[in-house]
């Protein structure tokens, strides 16, 4: 078995070995579905909208994953360094890149399972009406991509500190910043200062902007590329950071 696969397997099992992961999973599901049915973020509650689509669900996911992503990532490296097991892991025949990748993919699979569990909403919507499968597919695909990006950001902060809580908080704050980057008020702020280019860079990196069209059923290369680029960037940064912090 490949070393990265071995790490992946151990980590994925590890998620379901701790009660904390179940707690986070339940909080995520309850909060997401409650929010969907109760309405919010400028949208009517699911039933009031009288619309057989998952828009009311998808619009909540970028926010909910800003919490679940860093929560799934906080343990990743912080705990290895606190317990000293990082020295054991990285003196086995595995490269830092393989170890980082194995852990990242395991976390991504965990978030994918969380996302799968929201699919009861697909059944609900299909029972109540006749939803268009296109937006449901692109919406879920985009949400899965986003989950990976949040996880990558969280993983980076987990490599930065030995304290899981600090990793969670820093990761969460950064994820929210990435969500907010493209919001109209932020873009307007930079436009007002005559710095439109900053506004447009932020907008192109923003999770909200990139996810927007996918919720509507459009899969555009530049959106997928932007999210993947952020993900790969942070996974790479994690390997660099870990090389610095592993022995401390």
């Amino acid at each position: 078995m490949n070393a990265a696969t071995a790490v992946f397997k151990r980590e994925l099992k590890g998620y379901f070995g701790t009660p904390l992961a179940y707690v986070f999973l339940v909080i995520f599901l309850v909060a997401t579905l409650f929010w969907t049915f109760a309405g919010g973020l400028g949208e009517a509650p699911f039933f009031d909208a009288r619309n057989a689509s998952l828009r009311t669900l998808f619009s909540k996911l970028p926010w909910m994953f800003a919490f679940l992503g860093p929560a799934a990532a906080m343990r990743m490296w912080a705990e290895e360094r606190r317990a000293g097991t990082v020295e054991l892991l990285l003196t086995l025949p595995v490269t830092i890149r393989q170890a980082v990748l194995g852990k990242f993919l395991a976390g991504w699979a965990f978030l994918g399972i969380a996302l799968l569990l929201t699919m009861s909403m697909v059944l609900t919507t299909a029972y109540l009406g006749d939803p268009d499968p296109g937006p449901i597919f692109t919406g879920y695909f985009g949400a899965f991509l986003l989950a990976g990006a949040y996880l990558a950001i969280g993983g980076f902060f987990s490599a930065l500190t030995k304290n899981q809580l600090i990793a969670l908080l820093l990761g969460g704050v950064f994820c929210v910043l990435f969500v907010l980057a493209g919001s109209p008020s932020v873009v307007k702020f930079f436009d007002g200062m005559g710095l439109d280019w900053i506004g447009s860079i932020l907008e192109s990196l923003s999770f909200l902007t990139n996810y927007e069209s996918m919720q509507l059923g459009m899969l555009e290369f530049r959106n997928v590329f932007a999210i993947l680029a952020i993900t790969i960037g942070f996974v790479w940064a994690t390997t660099v950071m870990l090389n610095e912090t592993k022995a401390r």
Binding site: A83, G84, T85
Partner: peptide
């Protein structure tokens, strides 16, 4: 084969 100081191992396994 290497046993680091304090022999750290994964406690949850």
């Amino acid at each position: 084969g290497y046993v680091p100081e304090n022999a750290p191992i994964y406690g949850d396994m």
